[in-house]
Simulated scan of single mutants.
Amino acid sequence: MSTPSSQNDSTRAGDAERIQVAQLLTDAAAQGRLTTDEYEQRLAKAYAATTHGDLARLSVDLPDFATTTTSGPRTPAPSTVLLAILSGFERRGRWNVPKRLTAFALFGGGVIDLRYADFTSPEVDIRSISIFGGQTILVPPEVNVAVCGHGVMGSFDHVSEQGTPGAPCVTIRGFSLWGSVGVKRKKRKSN
Rank of each mutant, 00 (worst) to 15 (best):
Val139His: 03
Val139Thr: 13
Val139Asn: 03
Val139Tyr: 03
Val139Lys: 03
Pro140Ile: 08
Pro140Glu: 09
Pro140Cys: 12
Pro140Gln: 08
Pro141Gln: 07
Pro141Leu: 06
Pro141Ile: 04
Glu142Gly: 01
Glu142Tyr: 12
Glu142Ile: 07
Val143Arg: 02
Asn144Ser: 09
Asn144Val: 05
Val145Trp: 05
Val145Asn: 09
Val145Ile: 15
Val145Tyr: 05
Ala146Gly: 06
Val147His: 04
Cys148Val: 02
Cys148His: 14
Gly149Lys: 09
Gly149Ser: 11
Gly149Thr: 11
His150Val: 15
His150Thr: 13
His150Lys: 05
His150Gly: 01
Gly151Thr: 13
Gly151Phe: 12
Val152Gly: 00
Val152Glu: 00
Val152Ser: 00
Met153Gln: 06
Met153Tyr: 09
Gly154Cys: 07
Gly154Gln: 06
Gly154Tyr: 06
Gly154Asp: 08
Ser155Leu: 03
Ser155Val: 12
Phe156Gln: 05
Phe156Asn: 03
Asp157Trp: 00
His158Glu: 15
His158Ile: 05
His158Thr: 13
His158Arg: 15
His158Val: 12
His158Tyr: 02
Val159Asn: 02
Val159Tyr: 01
Ser160Phe: 01
Ser160Cys: 01
Ser160Ile: 02
Ser160Asp: 04
Ser160Gly: 03
Glu161Trp: 00
Gln162Ile: 00
Gln162His: 09
Gly163Met: 10
Gly163Pro: 09
Gly163Tyr: 05
Thr164Gln: 14
Thr164Glu: 14
Thr164Ile: 03
Thr164Cys: 08
Gly166Asn: 07
Gly166Phe: 03
Ala167Val: 09
Ala167Asn: 10
Ala167Lys: 06
Ala167Trp: 04
Ala167Asp: 10
Ala167Gln: 08
Pro168Arg: 07
Cys169Ala: 11
Cys169Gly: 02
Val170Thr: 11
Val170Gly: 10
Val170Phe: 06
Thr171Asn: 03
Ile172Cys: 02
Arg173Trp: 03
Gly174Pro: 09
Gly174Gln: 12
Gly174His: 10
Gly174Val: 12
Gly174Lys: 09
Phe175Arg: 03
Ser176Gly: 11
Ser176Met: 12
Leu177Pro: 01
Trp178Ala: 09
Gly179Arg: 06
Ser180Val: 08
Ser180Leu: 00
Ser180Arg: 14
Val181Trp: 00
Gly182Arg: 14
Lys184Ile: 04
Lys184Phe: 01
Lys184Tyr: 01
Arg185Tyr: 06
Arg185Leu: 08
Arg185Asn: 10
Arg185Glu: 08
Lys187Gly: 06
Arg188Asn: 14
Arg188Cys: 05
Arg188Trp: 05
Arg188Met: 15
Arg188Ala: 14
Lys189Ala: 12
Lys189Gly: 10
Ser190Phe: 02
Ser190Trp: 02
